[in-house]
Design a protein around this nucleic acid. Structure first.
Lengths: 209, 209
DNA sequence: TAATATTTGTGATTTTTTTCACTATAAATA
DNA sequence: TATTTATAGTGAAAAAAATCACAAATATTA
């Protein structure tokens, strides 16, 4: 099996939308329905799905429950994974209580911060620890994913620590790119860059593709 | 001028990195330096830059200050833009205090929430209002960008309200895709989807491209 | 001053991705 | 039952993007 990043991204979106459809009680969705929901074309959606050897039904589309199950299986989205959040400032502590992570199978089982006072003040159901205990806790709690919400200057160092402890995927909210071994999967979410992208497109000096 | 979304994204990242370099006092950066910092190749970077008719210096690279200025000019990243945040829950109120927005020329000049009690409790320097005043405030404060941090079921409705008031760019933190007129620029940041993407790549059923 | 090394700029090539166009299939309808 | 219609699946074509490869330029070194 061999999917491009674009395909994976689309499939992840489709997966999320299928969840919504399923909760609404919708039984079938056509490639066009899915395409509209994720901002793609129907043939791209069909190609993506057929790359995974999943089939739909003529004149009905795809069975919502089945497709979700199969996509989840093929992309390992059904398996639960433990995650931690490092940096419990405004953003980090908001993420600690972001219930959607749990709903979607990402269990945030620890938070870390370097400021001991902050750890004492924080009100959340999730256990919080000083960063000095990252290695120990990650091993003990089998944490695979690290969410980095520390100030950018510390991001690389925290990433290194997480990886040494065994984390294999990183969601990085700082605005620096962190250097990682190639076997580590990493996504950067830089809010400012998103606003820049919007501003650039608004300027009109661009295609609409 | 005609840039693909990929090019725009890369250029926005380059722009951010140039800012870092400039603050460090670095005078020149080669296409390879820039490429490494944003996760691209040197020829892609050179192509992107030359698409904008910006030139570098043989054997030196690009002048950091000049390149930043020119990229900013061509993509309208130098111009300040006013933004607002709708939905002042954990995430929204964290974003209200996210100083980087201001530093990078995005002035968050208003926050909105439907819960009046919440508005009274919130401690921030930024003016906050009930959502019923969105239209009035957006017009009065010349707000171009809307940051949506409300629960997903309200996102479409808020987006419609923002657009009717004159907002032209939307950064959407909810997990639903919102339907917008084509002249509105929109970026979705769905944290769960990012984690799904990481999980899918970790599963290994994918290329490494 | 000459030789060397480095880095840009870019046309050509290759690769990847998307889109098209059409067949097959089965549900719905007459 | 026959016809119509909607939708999947997919090879082929087109479009887009990335990469290569190398000339040109200029800083550095000998």
């Amino acid at each position: 099996m061999s999917l491009s990043n674009n395909s994976i991204e689309r499939i992840c979106k489709i997966f999320g939308y299928l969840d919504t459809l399923d909760k609404q009680g919708t039984k079938f969705a056509s490639s066009l329905d899915l395409a509209k929901a994720i901002g793609a074309t129907s043939y791209t959606v069909r190609k993506d799905i057929s790359l995974l050897n999943i089939i739909g039904y003529t004149r009905k589309g795809y069975d919502v429950k089945t497709l979700k199950e199969e996509l989840g299986q093929k992309l390992c989205l059904n398996k639960k994974r433990n995650a931690c959040i490092v940096g419990l400032g405004r953003l980090g502590s908001a993420l600690l209580d972001y219930e959607k992570f749990q709903e979607d199978g990402f269990d945030v089982v620890a938070g870390f911060d370097s400021n001991i006072n902050k750890l004492e003040r924080i009100r959340t159901d999730i256990d919080v620890y000083p960063v000095s205990r990252i290695n120990e806790i990650i091993i003990r709690k089998h944490i695979e994913l690290g969410i980095i919400a520390v100030p950018s200057e510390y991001a690389q160092n925290i990433a290194d620590t997480l990886i040494k402890a065994g984390v294999t995927g990183i969601l990085n909210f700082s605005y620096v790119k962190i250097n990682l071994p190639k076997n580590i999967i990493n996504v950067n979410l830089d809010f400012t860059n998103s606003l820049r992208f919007i501003a650039a497109k608004l300027s009109g000096n661009t295609t609409n593709k």
